[in-house]
């Protein structure tokens, strides 16, 4: 039973970054900007958040108020993500640059910048920022008796503050997109910006909002990824930004299908990462380096799913096309 609780719990914690970042991509694309820079934004968010945690750990604030410190670090990660995403917004909206190329530039920039800064702060060759252990939500930290049952494993073995925050953000993201005037306007800018402009919506502002929201979510997502992996931050988020893009496409640019997609992919990721300790998987005797086989799985599954869903999938119509007022 505990194995099942372990798998569910791990799946949730790996689904959190995918869900957050894919929702970010959804906001950006509904406003009409292809955000290929999600990977880079995650790296920058994680970098700043981890440095905050490191600082709190050293000055004693963290161990004293662990969840408050964690919350502040998440806020910093989000702010860093917003700041970095502005670079994409500026190039794509004001300068009408090619969005894919701009995103690629930011993706190359972010990990390099993270390595250089980590070196500069921690000293030569120290490329990993360690994550302090006090950030985990345990039963002790909530004043409960430590136990070892199914629900204790499910809720308290691997969970961090990012999980409840993700749930709240998911609900807000859905409400904002489908139940508010802002969401309707944002989507209009991604479908037909000329029409949106003709009824008085400022397309440039809406697109800035879309990209900044995606930066906010991807920044937190980067932090959530580092926590999920658990071995510290070494200037990489392991292709999760790109995986999130695939999740977004598979999720057909809609929040609830994105939620489902991210849980499926997280499950495969967990199977890949913990294949040796999951009892009911085939053992494949005689095959060396089994983990490579399992690690391929999430990507192969992504491709298969995309084959079956892409014909029907409908991207926002105006995504990727710079909006020029003159074309109205």
């Amino acid at each position: 039973m505990n194995v099942l609780a372990n798998i569910i719990s791990l799946t949730i914690i790996f689904a959190v970054p995918l869900l957050l970042v894919a929702l970010g991509g959804m906001y950006s694309e509904h406003s009409g900007i292809i955000n290929l820079a999600l990977e880079g934004i995650m790296v920058i968010g994680a970098l700043c958040g981890c440095f905050m945690l490191r600082m709190f750990d050293q000055n004693g604030f963290g161990p004293a108020y662990p969840q408050l410190a964690m919350f502040l670090a998440i806020l910093v990660a989000a702010a860093a993500g917003v700041g970095f995403s502005l670079l994409l917004a500026f190039a794509a909206i004001n300068l009408k640059a090619d969005q894919t190329i701009g995103g690629t530039a930011l993706n190359i920039f972010a990990p390099a910048f993270a390595v250089v800064v980590t070196w500069a702060v921690q000293g030569q060759g120290q490329t990993t920022i360690q994550i302090p252990s006090w950030i985990r939500i345990t039963q002790e930290s909530l004043g409960m008796e430590p136990s070892n049952g199914f629900f204790a494993t499910l809720f308290f073995k691997y969970q961090y503050l990012t999980t409840p925050i993700c749930i709240v953000l998911f609900i807000i993201a859905w409400l904002l997109m489908y139940k508010t005037k802002f969401g309707l306007r944002l989507r209009a800018c991604g479908e037909h910006p000329q029409a949106a402009d003709s009824v008085g919506i400022n397309v440039y502002k809406m697109r800035y909002a879309g990209v900044m929201i995606s930066g906010f979510l991807a920044g937190i997502g980067g932090m959530a990824y580092v926590i999920a992996v658990g071995s510290g931050f070494s200037s990489s988020v392991g292709g999760y930004g790109f995986l999130a893009l695939a999740v977004m496409i598979f999720g057909n640019w809609k929040p609830f299908t994105i939620l489902g997609a991210s849980i499926i992919f997280a499950l495969f990721k967990v199977v890949a990462a913990y294949n040796s300790s999951i009892p009911f998987l085939p053992k494949l005797e005689g095959l060396k380096d089994k983990s490579s086989l399992y690690q391929m799985l999430p990507y192969i599954v992504t491709m298969i799913v995309l084959v079956f869903t892409s014909k029907k999938s409908r991207a926002p119509k105006a995504e990727g096309i710079p909006y020029d007022k003159g074309t109205r």
């Binding site: 790109f242 380096d289 391929m296 990507y299 192969i300 992504t302 491709m303 892409s310």
Partner: peptide, 30 residues
């Protein structure tokens, strides 16, 4: 994938970067 199923080539390429790397590792190890 692009021609037959309308899958964006950026996503396919990225996925096949990873698949290729793991596949080569798997093959070489065996």
């Amino acid at each position: 994938f692009k021609a037959l199923f309308n899958v964006n080539e950026v996503i396919t390429s990225i996925m096949f970067n990873w698949i290729g790397m793991f596949l080569v590792n798997l093959c070489l190890a065996n």
